[in-house]
Design a protein around this nucleic acid. Structure first.
Lengths: 356, 356
DNA sequence: CTGAAAGCGCTTACAG
DNA sequence: CTGAAAGCGCTTACAG
């Protein structure tokens, strides 16, 4: 079936407008009796216009309800003032906080967020789609990027920051928290508060966050003469973490063999672990098992969990991300930098404390 | 300090390119030995091109790594394939689910989400900014819109859907769940399971969701010869809800005067209420007080809460939203419709059950 | 400081 | 089915 091209949308006669046609800088120019260039300049901070000209233009614009068309502006200036944010895993409460903070922060500088959610590992196709929109920069949060595409984007001189991932370190800028230090702090804390048998529930095996947190844990335990006695994979998912907990604590172990502490690679999974320990397994937290998480999401403070966890501070991480992005945009250059934001242990009541 | 206009960015010589310059349809046309129009048509589904021409073009495009510039396309076609989504209140877990589902659903139809987060009540300024980006449609979730601006947007023929809000009913399309029916179902359930003294924690007083949920509750209770015995405002915020709970249950009431059931206008606030009841107030849930929420967010199923709540189904709500939007985009017409998605009570263990 | 004009990279009637 | 050309609404050297 061939649809005829919509005949009602023929060019509107000059000045009249057909309803859909919107107000352009030409309309404003006509009313203000200046050139179209003058109108454009009046809306460009720092452009060379006489103050009174600008006033006249702004007044005319106000009368007509004119706002510069950002698409046309992007096409001619090659700057969209849009930043693409790619992420997955919104179930983890850390990310809503990130989106919220990041988008408000960017709005403050006049940038807008074009958001892409992907559940698939491979964000390449999505990224290519993004690039069609002339985004000025890209933030990859909890998402992987193939090194081939990373190179392609760098060649196109588009700044990219990997947020909370460091996999392509070296070729792309990264911002992460001190996952290694955080894991180690947990190890020291658990050892110092008398725990002997520490188990670990891993996030996604191939994620740098998981690798660093686990490495930190192992290193820290080794420094105290301990090691990880059991391990299962939760893949950063709630359900998988519940299963992992069953795996580690099921099978009716005599309490002497049962882990007395559990470090979980994210708070989100730690909630599942606590629910499972208390529910199906009938264990007390922290009397029978201490549980420590990572992230310090808002729910970690909730009364039902009171989770001891490693704080990963969204605000400084985002500030670093935005700084790196804006810097590169300003210099019109793509640089590489790696920022590691410190973490700190937040003590609540899901883990036993040292006797001190 | 006057920055000289960047001299390194002069027009690149034809064919050569300065590194930043990207591949255009002209480059592809040259390689494929066709006109630029033919290239454009080859990328337009349903356009009139000979199959072999299209093949030749696509092959050339592949060789060059060409992708049509979406900004240029928007400017000439007046369609951006971007939908603006405006929301606040990401702390409430209902919204991450909504963003995730909505953006994946729209991506499936080739649309992209331009996301705006606002914590301020007045989204007007933000909306005007959005309109500069030529978005094809707007979804307002948990956000208000002045009726003046609503009219202005309608005049510009941009489809808008209010998601989970019905305030401007009549002038704008809305999608909401059956808040009234949900509130009433809660009332009947509480009455039928022997509760006598029902208290209510309200969300934002001026929100239609809160008004409808409360009205449903009151109507349903009245039908059973009961009424709301106490009420406090939580404003859909966690902390305020904790305070509201203190307000309702603090002051050491004799148990005969204390409410024996609490309906909370959102799950997010219900978690705060349960924490407060169990913690600071030392009451048991549901033995001393039954608690019922609204939304059925993922956490409502968590072991620590096992919250009885009204399910508000994100998927059908989003499907309805997208249908309405796409319909209007296709017809190039702005219409008004009001969809109400049914709710259902999900029984868990935060509220006592009828003895049946 | 100002205006005329070219250009950004597409889409789309129009005339073969 | 195809190409030449106008147009979308801006920005920005260029020449006063």
């Amino acid at each position: 079936m061939i649809k005829p091209l919509n005949p009602s949308k023929g060019r509107p006669g000059p000045g009249l407008g057909s309803g859909r046609r919107s107000i352009t800088s030409n309309d404003v120019a006509r009313l203000a009796e200046v050139s179209q260039s003058a109108v454009s300049r009046s809306f460009t901070p720092g452009a060379s216009v006489a103050p009174e000209t600008r006033l006249r233009v702004l007044e005319a614009a106000r009368k007509l309800g004119y706002r510069p068309n950002a698409i046309a502006s992007t096409l001619s200036s090659q700057r969209s003032r849009m930043i693409a944010v790619v992420l997955s895993n919104l179930q983890n409460q850390f990310y809503p906080v990130v989106i919220e903070t990041l988008s408000q922060r960017l709005q403050k500088d006049g940038y807008h967020v074009l958001l892409f959610i992907t559940e698939t590992e491979d964000a390449d196709e999505l990224l290519l789609e993004l690039l069609r929109y002339q985004v000025d920069g890209i933030v990859m949060a909890s998402t992987q990027l193939s090194s081939g595409l990373a190179q392609q984007i760098a060649d196109a001189r588009i700044p990219v920051v990997m947020f909370n991932r460091t996999s392509l370190k070296g070729s792309i800028s990264t911002v992460s928290s001190d996952n290694l230090g955080g894991g180690r702090a947990v190890a020291h804390f658990l050892a110092d508060s008398g725990h002997q048998r520490v188990a670990y529930i891993a996030g996604a095996e191939d994620s740098s966050t998981n690798q660093d947190r686990e490495e930190g844990l192992r290193a820290g335990l080794a420094e105290r003469g301990l090691r990880v006695v059991a391990r299962a994979v939760g893949n950063y998912e709630f359900e998988r973490a519940a299963l992992a907990t069953q795996e580690l604590f099921g099978g009716m172990l005599p309490s002497a063999e049962r882990p007395d502490a559990l470090f979980v690679a994210s708070d989100h999974m730690a909630f599942a672990a606590i629910d499972t320990l208390r529910g199906a397994l009938g264990l007390r937290v922290p009397e029978d098992v201490s549980v420590v998480g990572f992230d310090n999401v808002p729910q970690a403070a909730w009364g039902a969990y009171r989770l001891t966890t490693v704080e990963q501070s969204a605000v400084p991480m985002i500030e670093a991300t935005v700084q790196m992005l804006l810097q590169q945009l300003e210099d019109d250059a793509v640089t590489r930098d790696h920022v590691v934001v410190p973490t700190r242990l937040v003590l609540r009541s899901s883990a036993r404390l040292p006797r001190s």
